[in-house]
Amino acid sequence: MEYPIGRRATVQAVCGVSFGIQKGETLGLVGESGCGKTTLARAIVNLQPVSSGWIDYNGQRLTGGRRQGGGAPTGIQMIFQDATASLNPSRSVGKTIAEPLRIDGKTDRRTRYRLAAEMMRDVGLEPATMFGRRPFEFSGGQCQRISIARALITSPRMLICDEPVSSLDVSVQAQILNLLRRIKSRYGLTMLFISHDLSVVKNVSDHVAVMYMGALCEIAPAARFYQSPLHPYAAALLAAVPDPDPDGSMDPVPRIFFDDPDPTPGSTGCRYQPRCRHARPRCAARRPALRQMTGDRQVACHFPLHSSSAPDECA
């Protein structure tokens, strides 16, 4: 599978992004708010028009010639950050879970409700007492379970998770992450896991992709990425993750600081260059393309860190 996407509108939210996900693996997509990671996910499930480029899924082209609407591509489902808002407040949660089957129209009501109840049990909810309740009677974590159940009821092969745990408490976050990992192996899902939290992404991902201002700056197998990120932005992101295990004295980590990263529209240089501590004249002049590095890694940087293949005196 490969997804090169270019979306051109008045604002270029995502521009020239290309990557692939192998069947059965989880790709963690990381970036700060507004970097285009959600737009990318919405483009895959057909909630956002794609202006150029193509998305293939299972050898089948998803983009091009399709009108908007018509639902997610068969086999792909998505869960959202604000799970409570993703449930219709006036519909009972049991019916909400069964709704995709109703739209599908292949099952009768009794089968639908039976399947929905089974799915509720699968995600750790008790259908006997909870089926008829409305979303506002549930906590954020329970709502996310409900939305996972709804996504799974059409037996998708791929699940896109858009910041599924960012608005949850740590204890509940752990429950949901464990649940996602369990259903992934149980249903053999391929996952695109979007998050701004690198430690959460590490827990679920096989590969990690980092996005900055609408473009990818690094893709790598998770293990290698966390050991030594190549892109300065990825390194800054990793350094900014708060450490829950202070060893008494915390050495001050060099933070990136930049007033407001205004993307200069006409700039042809690297997008990260205004914030980059390693920027050199070449970075301002030419935008680096994503290039292949050793160890199945790709990076969009003229002077990657920790790299033997490119000289870097700053590292």
Partner: peptide, 24 residues
């Protein structure tokens, strides 16, 4: 987001209007 969720499930515009928006 629940409108997006309905769209993902394949609901058309009329179904979204009558089943998702109007009841609310």
């Amino acid at each position: 987001a629940f409108i997006d969720a309905a769209r993902l499930a394949g609901a058309g515009d009329m179904a979204i209007l009558f089943r998702e928006i109007i009841p609310n």
